[in-house]
Design a protein around this nucleic acid. Structure first.
Length: 215
DNA sequence: AACTCCTGCAACCGCCTCTGC
DNA sequence: CGCAGAGGCGGTTGCAGGAGT
């Protein structure tokens, strides 16, 4: 059994109070982010470091854009989800002022339902009511077997196969270009390279996927 | 008005990855 | 190279508030 991230006794849990928020803000303004484990004690907070980090990143950071998602943000999330799967931090990285938690929540509460209501399987972005690009029963079976053998949880490869399989429909919005220059951190670049390898993309040059997106 | 059900979101948990030694 | 500690991430939970009956 793994050791807990911090001593569980003597730490507050649940919703943050205004005083706690203020302490965290004041401390980070004075000392900057980093060393989350020692931060609570230094800031006089009875919280674990992870909790402080989460609170700051998801709620207190000054550059956060709060409120409803714009239509273009929705589009981008759907496109990126088709490309990356549940890589919420990568997706959030493309949406200035949005956090991975926010994007994840928005996906689970709004976008997933929206896609389902349009007859699209939110897991793999395929039309769920009729199989795409299968002209005969045998082709459909073959397709089904292929999906099955890929495994349900392999969302990245699944999303990628969706890119391969689906022929463009008339009202699709297909404009998505991701170039390495937009990956701001080394970590993101590494993660993107990893996901490229997973999906069998060797070159890290511009990706211009063809994804099903309905407007 | 009271109750139940549903929805959205903040926060937690546990695993994975990275980094320094 | 292997280990341990810290940070980061995605999945899940729990609660508050709104909608419906």
């Amino acid at each position: 059994m793994r050791k807990p991230c911090c001593e569980k006794q003597d730490t507050n849990k649940g919703a943050w109070s205004k005083q706690e928020d203020q302490k965290l803000i004041d401390y980070i303004r004075a000392h900057g982010e980093g060393c989350w484990r020692s931060l609570p004690q230094a800031a006089g907070l009875l919280r674990c470091g992870k909790s402080c980090r989460l609170r700051w990143i998801n709620y207190l950071r000054p550059d956060l854009k709060r409120g409803n998602f714009a239509e273009d943000e929705e589009d981008l999330i759907i496109k990126l989800h088709a490309l990356l799967g549940n890589r919420w931090s990568l997706i959030a990285g493309r949406l200035p002022g949005r956090t991975d938690n926010e994007v994840k929540n928005y996906w689970n509460s709004h976008l997933r339902r929206k896609l389902m209501s349009m007859g699209i399987d939110p897991k793999n972005h395929r039309l769920s009511q009729k199989l795409p690009s299968c002209r005969s029963k045998s082709q459909a079976n073959e397709h089904f077997q292929k999906v099955k053998s890929n495994g349900e949880n392999d969302q990245v490869s699944d999303a990628a196969s969706c890119v391969d399989d689906i022929s463009p429909l008339p009202d699709l919005n297909l404009d998505l270009t991701i170039t390495p220059s937009c990956f701001t951190t080394e970590r993101e670049k590494q993660q993107q390279q990893k996901s490229n390898v997973l999906r069998g993309i060797e070159s890290t040059s511009a990706l211009t996927p063809t994804l099903p997106l309905f407007r």
